[in-house]
């Protein structure tokens, strides 16, 4: 038992707290003072567009499955050209915890996190955002990625027309 150490350990903190009492607080008084965010700060999500300007979201439900608070809901639908898209896409920011798991789950890079964090509101319904509110007109951090150019099911290109695909096979040929 080191009595001296214990006594010192008990009383030294008093000196530290007393010293701190006279130091300048480090608090940033938020609404008046705003801190500069890191450029890749991730706050609320956005829905980006592919290089052709079309919605990237294919309503695959992976974000809503990944969401730990179940704040995303959507309904998929099919367009005339076979493109799968979201008939509606809704996120309840009143429930959202800004964890970014949706962006991580998104296979088409549609969901990305923007740095907009000031969403406070007294009307809960105003915190329920629809697809139209979330859509932006750019491709976010990876503007060249085009999901349908890699899927190989022929939505934006004819079947077998993407770069990494062979033309459709001729099933009636006998050649080896």
């Amino acid at each position: 038992m080191n009595l001296w150490r214990d006594i010192k350990g008990t009383f030294q903190p008093f000196w530290i707290t007393l010293r701190y009492l006279f130091k300048r607080p480090v608090t940033i008084s938020y609404p008046e003072q705003k801190r500069t965010l890191p450029p890749r700060y991730r706050a609320r999500m956005i829905l980006t567009r592919d290089p052709d300007g079309e919605e990237r979201c294919v309503a695959c439900h992976l974000c809503s499955a990944a969401c730990p608070v179940d704040c995303i809901s959507m309904q998929a639908a099919e367009r005339a050209d076979g493109r799968r898209h979201a008939a509606w896409f809704r996120i309840n920011f009143a429930r959202c915890i800004y964890c970014g798991l949706c962006a991580e789950a998104c296979p088409t890079l549609a969901i990305q996190m923007s740095s907009e964090y000031e969403l406070g509101n007294r009307d809960l319904l105003k915190l329920v955002w629809e697809k139209e509110d979330l859509l932006v007109d750019h491709g976010g951090k990876d503007p060249d990625y085009h999901f349908y150019r890699h899927t190989g099911i022929g939505v934006v290109a004819p079947r077998g027309g993407n770069n990494d695909e062979l033309p459709p096979v001729d099933i009636k040929t006998n050649l080896p």
Binding site: Y20, L21, F22, P25, V26, T27, S29
Partner: peptide
């Protein structure tokens, strides 16, 4: 307490 913790 706040000042001891360098808050306001």
């Amino acid at each position: 307490l706040a000042r001891m913790q360098r808050r306001y």
